[in-house]
Simulated assay, not measured.
Amino acid sequence: MITPDNWRKSSYSGGGEGNACVEIADRRTHIAVRDTKAPTRTTLSITTAAFAAFVNALKTAEDHPG
């Protein structure tokens, strides 16, 4: 089980209460992802390697839009 203190919000959460985003929890072998507005619902589990590739792809797309 993932405890609430393990969850982190995106740095792109925006203003206000910052609840219009996702949160992640690092669980060594995988990353759990949940909707900030519905934290008690089911989480998405992604391998650490796949999540790292996803984040790197986002960074590359941000650096080279279009």
Rank of each mutant, 00 (worst) to 15 (best):
F51G: 00
K59N: 14
R27V: 09
F54G: 05
E17C: 07
T3I: 08
L44E: 02
S10W: 03
A57F: 05
L44M: 10
N19H: 11
A25C: 05
N19D: 11
S10R: 02
G15F: 10
I24Q: 00
G18E: 01
R41H: 13
I46V: 15
W7A: 07
S11E: 01
S45D: 11
R27F: 04
D35H: 12
A61E: 12
A57L: 09
S13K: 04
C21S: 01
A38I: 06
D63I: 06
I46Q: 01
D63Q: 15
V33K: 07
A52V: 12
H64P: 04
K59H: 12
V55C: 14
G15L: 05
G16W: 08
C21R: 00
P4D: 09
R8M: 13
A50H: 08
I2K: 01
D35V: 05
A20V: 13
T36S: 15
T3E: 01
A52G: 09
A53V: 11
T48I: 09
A25P: 03
V22R: 01
L58Y: 02
A57T: 14
T47H: 13
V55N: 11
R34A: 02
N6M: 15
T42L: 15
V33T: 12
D26E: 09
R28K: 10
E62P: 02
P39M: 15
T29E: 14
G14S: 10
D5E: 11
A25N: 02
T36G: 07
N56V: 04
D26V: 08
S11A: 14
S45M: 00
V55K: 08
S45K: 05
A25V: 04
A50M: 08
G14Y: 13
V55G: 12
R27N: 09
T29Q: 12
W7D: 00
R41F: 12
K59A: 14
P65W: 03
R28Q: 11
S10F: 06
A49T: 13
G66F: 06
D26H: 14
T3V: 13
R27Q: 13
T60R: 05
F51M: 06
T47P: 05
D35N: 08
P65D: 11
D35K: 07
R34Y: 10
G14I: 14
G14V: 14
I24M: 03
R41C: 06
G14D: 03
P65N: 08
F51Q: 04
G15A: 10
I31S: 06
T36I: 08
C21D: 00
I46F: 01
N19S: 13
S13I: 07
